[in-house]
Design a protein around this nucleic acid. Structure first.
Lengths: 140, 140
DNA sequence: CTTTGTGCAAACGATTTGCAGGATG
DNA sequence: CATCCTGCAAATCGTTTGCACAAAG
């Protein structure tokens, strides 16, 4: 998987970011995951075996990656900031029972008549947050 | 406006909540506003003239009101929890330039084909968050 | 009178900052 | 070699908690 690492390095460089081991590790970790981890979860995951990054660096790296548009913040619960390296437009579902978060395909809402929401607003992006019960919690 | 105060008292009682001056003040303040204040903003607003509620009480009152379904949390920015006493379903727009938050009518998204988002998910509610530039920031 | 809410101050968890040394381009 | 990043520890911010007293039903 040398190719993949190279691609990640190129992505970072393309955004004008220096490629440091810590920043690379944070971004790679987030790209490999399928969940929506908090900064804390990324930190402990990275340092599981050997120490990789300090707390401050993980927080700063995430800020940097967010500002570069490589990573998205996902705010679903009060006081909990999650991160997502999947930048293709998509939405989120949160099970209010187990707390699990699932992606929802963008096309599900493609028919949204966003243009005419309100005249005067220049719309950049939108996100739908769905709450309910996942199939696991739903079938006892 | 005695009528209005009575209506608020009745609303609280109907939810089985004790009506204390502090709780009443928090809820009334939120009902009268058109913005989406943080707990901190409500606190300082209430205590502007005379001391009305302590910090802890405002936080607890907001929790209680949220649990009773009288108030909604609005999460648009990392680390900022806003509150909204308008419980009729509606969505939010946030100007990324001035940070202002506007309500968006529910009907704008009424045509959402939510039922068939994904089989297995039992959907409770959803919310659309729109980001962009408001008309004020857009016209220089 | 029993239960629940309040105020205060201390505790807390997540995130940010200042600063000195180190690595990157 | 100038700039930017990292690590550490301390600081900060928003929110929560423990406890004694007060108020609501």
């Amino acid at each position: 998987m040398q190719k993949q690492a190279d691609r990640i390095v190129q992505t970072l460089k393309a955004k004008g970011l220096r490629v440091t081991p810590q920043r690379f590790a944070v971004y790679t970790n987030l790209l490999m995951r399928h969940d929506h981890p908090t900064a804390e979860q990324i930190l402990s995951d990275l340092n599981q075996d050997a120490p990789t990054s300090s707390q401050a660096t993980v927080y700063l790296s995430l800020q940097t990656l967010r500002d570069a548009g490589l990573v998205r913040e996902v705010l679903l619960e009060q006081g909990v900031c999650r991160y997502d390296a999947k930048v293709e437009p998509h939405h989120h579902f949160r099970c209010k029972c187990c707390g699990e978060i699932e992606d929802i395909a963008w096309e599900a809402f493609d028919q949204l008549g966003l243009r005419q929401v309100r005249s005067g607003l220049k719309i950049d992006s939108y996100e739908v947050i769905v709450t309910g019960m996942c199939d696991r919690c739903n079938t006892p």
